[in-house]
Design a protein around this nucleic acid. Sequence first.
DNA 1: CTGTAATCGAGACGGTACGTCGGGTCTTCAA
DNA 2: TTGAAGACCCGACGTACCGTCTCGATTACAG
Lengths: 228, 228, 228, 228
Amino acid sequence: MHRCPLTGTSSPADRAGPRSRTGRPRSAEADRAILDATRAALVELGWGKLTMGDVAARAGVAKTTLYRRWANKNELVLDAVAVLFDELELPDRGCLQADIEGVVLQFASLLARPETKTALMAVVAESTTDEALRVRIRAAVVERQKRLVVLGRERAQARGELPPDPAGEEGAAAAGRAVGLIFDVIAGAVVHRALVSAEPVDERWAQQFSALLLTGLAGLAEAGPAGA
Amino acid sequence: MHRCPLTGTSSPADRAGPRSRTGRPRSAEADRAILDATRAALVELGWGKLTMGDVAARAGVAKTTLYRRWANKNELVLDAVAVLFDELELPDRGCLQADIEGVVLQFASLLARPETKTALMAVVAESTTDEALRVRIRAAVVERQKRLVVLGRERAQARGELPPDPAGEEGAAAAGRAVGLIFDVIAGAVVHRALVSAEPVDERWAQQFSALLLTGLAGLAEAGPAGA
Amino acid sequence: MHRCPLTGTSSPADRAGPRSRTGRPRSAEADRAILDATRAALVELGWGKLTMGDVAARAGVAKTTLYRRWANKNELVLDAVAVLFDELELPDRGCLQADIEGVVLQFASLLARPETKTALMAVVAESTTDEALRVRIRAAVVERQKRLVVLGRERAQARGELPPDPAGEEGAAAAGRAVGLIFDVIAGAVVHRALVSAEPVDERWAQQFSALLLTGLAGLAEAGPAGA
Amino acid sequence: MHRCPLTGTSSPADRAGPRSRTGRPRSAEADRAILDATRAALVELGWGKLTMGDVAARAGVAKTTLYRRWANKNELVLDAVAVLFDELELPDRGCLQADIEGVVLQFASLLARPETKTALMAVVAESTTDEALRVRIRAAVVERQKRLVVLGRERAQARGELPPDPAGEEGAAAAGRAVGLIFDVIAGAVVHRALVSAEPVDERWAQQFSALLLTGLAGLAEAGPAGA
DNA sequence: CTGTAATCGAGACGGTACGTCGGGTCTTCAA
DNA sequence: TTGAAGACCCGACGTACCGTCTCGATTACAG
């Protein structure tokens, strides 16, 4: 296969290996048009009814141009949706609970967008039988969100709301595990409520959840050094 | 339309509307064979490559027979997978934390099965553009799991690990919200770790997660009566 | 391959082997609609621009229905055009030369029809690399025309314009060779003038050609018994 | 358009309109390589499966280079095949019948070559819907062969086997018609036997055909002055 | 010896058709 | 009425060629 894995930042037009020195170069504008068209098609049609031919037509591009860049619908849609996760930020709201509430609501509003909600689950579903896609998801989605957790934790430690990371190699590993745990709890709870339970993630829920998590974190911090 | 919505317990062969009194009765064996074939196909092919024709061939049945019982692929797969959730139980392990750990590991091992993991996410993805399917999912999956949370909570209250539900209509509502929250946190975290982060849900993770949740619940119980 | 060779008379719907006793039978109307549509498309578009999709659309039929009956464009077009050769007849014009002129003009007017002219050469061209097609052409076109030559010869013999076939096995072989030769001369000359030289096959040409052939036949008949 | 019609003798590299005095000149070697590659591809693949890209690759040349010289597949293939007709000659075998037999066998052996047989019919088929191609075929194939007929006739007249052309304008016209007729009969019969009837053009057939034609010509010569 | 102008290989591009596959329906015959 | 078989319509798939285009790099001739 001549396509190489997405690093999470490179544009697809770059991904033709070592950039062949000869021949007509790939059109960067086509890249942009295709991704825009993909998002538009997701909004209108949803994952299930989105077709490669339709995306090509919307982008004013030949189908071959799509397939030259992406091996299949999964990878195209993932790339199209991944950039939306760049919008997530962690504004400083003064205290940890407010920060958590903020990120929960922000994430929830991202999931409320039709292109995100329909695409994300579908791509995860496909990734259960497609190792390459699983790797791409980690790079394009998981890592992009995890850094928010890392940042929030550091900020809370700076404020004294959480104890500093334990020293040593083992301490770093424990901190890493904590970040992973927290990330799965936050993202998992929000996604599950929004898409599986199919109930609204509103202010009240965000507040209750944040309270639960905050207390839990405090307990974890106490027990952590000894327990883990 | 001659098909009626799945209640979550009835067998598909029962669902032929007013049950015609004449003609050849539907084969119950066909039902079983179809659902078995569906699960087998999910394991081998995953959701994306599973086809109705293939399921019919595996089951030794005509496609007509499938469509007489299920309106489409989504509903068939959902029914085929839903019964797996009946395996989930809540054995009494003596204390709340152990109970939580138990249910987490049990759910994780269910999600580790290829037919569950690929089908669940796919069906949820489809449900974002299919209201009927969303309803079916609630009945077949969400409610089936939620009762475990309810049961666990009652058991913990009986043991005195959690305060009893507040009285009154408003108290019942608050209790309901708490169940929903806890359910989304547990199921969401496990699903997210298993499928999105794609990392193992092992004893250590289950223990850490349970500790986090337990502390959180205690805090919630204290603040709950006043705060919510 | 599940398709069997054309016998020249059977309808394509019959050609599904031993006629499976089960399942929905093939639509005879679809057969007719497809062949009609093929001829119409040939007239409008010519061989080169005729597409399977377009034929299907004209016939109000799915592409799969075409492919279920014919393996490719060549075979479809051949079948569609072959029936036109049934129109050729040999009216008794009283003497051999007049009969020859008649058949020449008749064949020329058949070749003047756009569907015939574009299709015939194309199919012959393809047959140079497709043995199965070559067989089909013999059955559907060559044999259909050759019988006219046989008939004309018999009639001329009855009139005493040509000597009777020599007796014996060898005589029959010689007669067969003569028929083949005459056929290739007539059909070849007309096709070549019409399509390669691209000049009109009019009364004058037909008369000249018939005179040439008639004299040649007389000479052949004289020399034949001894020379061949 | 910068391409001019083929005269039948010019090399494609000459045909760049007013021949710009500046810039890099076209590679004559490329011309040769392309035509060779085209013939090779015809042999291996036949007309139907021959592709421009494949020819370019075989010739070690870019597709651009092909299209700079030939407008399309038809014209390229025609040019590639046309030169083969230059091989046809008319060796003096002493008498008219022998000359006819010679030319028939020679033409038959040319048609037996796979590149000729597949290309000739295909190009003729295309020419039924392409006027420009028809003109090209006349120049590249028809005229090239017709001169053999003219030559053979003159030789036979010199030998006294055929009467001399009648004098006057009308006589010249009649002679022209006779050449055309003879040409279509010879070429048509051979092509038809070889490609449509798909039977061998061997010595015996050639001899029988020549006898037929010779007698016919004699009769035509007698009747001609009066009848035409 | 420097510019101008055409060529060359390479390969991306917009199109059109291909032949196949899957979804879901319909038709026939047998049970 | 159900069930197996299989034809049907529809629409998308991913591929293959077409003929065009844009690159960077050559290669001639003109000044």
